[in-house]
């Protein structure tokens, strides 16, 4: 089993792990993936993956506006709002 790059994963997942927690999570992940690796023993050649428990068709909605938007309510629990905009630290494109 290859060594898991927890730092890379935490960057992908945008979780700023630090110090002890990082090494602890590495231990955990290593242990979990060792358990997971028992899957390798199962022969799955010619088995179709199952993404969803029901073999059903997707239900669609008709093209009508059903939502009335209450911005004030939606933004009541927002951390930082300015003139109706959500505000984050400056991003450079």
């Amino acid at each position: 089993m290859p060594k898991i790059d927890v730092e890379h994963l935490s960057r992908l997942a945008q979780i700023g792990l630090e110090g002890e927690e990082l090494s602890e999570l590495y231990e955990n992940l290593d242990q979990i993936m060792r358990m997971v690796d028992q899957m390798r023993e199962i022969d799955t050649t010619e088995v179709e993956p199952l993404a969803h428990p029901l073999d059903a068709n997707q239900q669609l909605r008709s093209d009508v506006q059903t939502e009335e938007i209450d911005r004030e309510l939606n933004q009541a629990m927002a951390p930082l709002i300015e003139d109706g905009f959500y505000i984050v630290p400056r991003v450079v494109d």
Binding site: D63, Q65, E67, I69, N74, Q75, G84, F85
Partner: peptide, 29 residues
């Protein structure tokens, strides 16, 4: 050019005040 969004019943209109056309689904609540 639909009346409502692809995955929600919010309107598709341009030039409206910020965040006034985004419903809970669009906001990813």
């Amino acid at each position: 050019a639909t009346q409502s969004k692809i995955f929600s019943g919010a309107p598709v209109k341009f030039g409206e005040p910020p965040n006034s056309q985004a419903c809970a689904v669009d906001l990813g609540l």
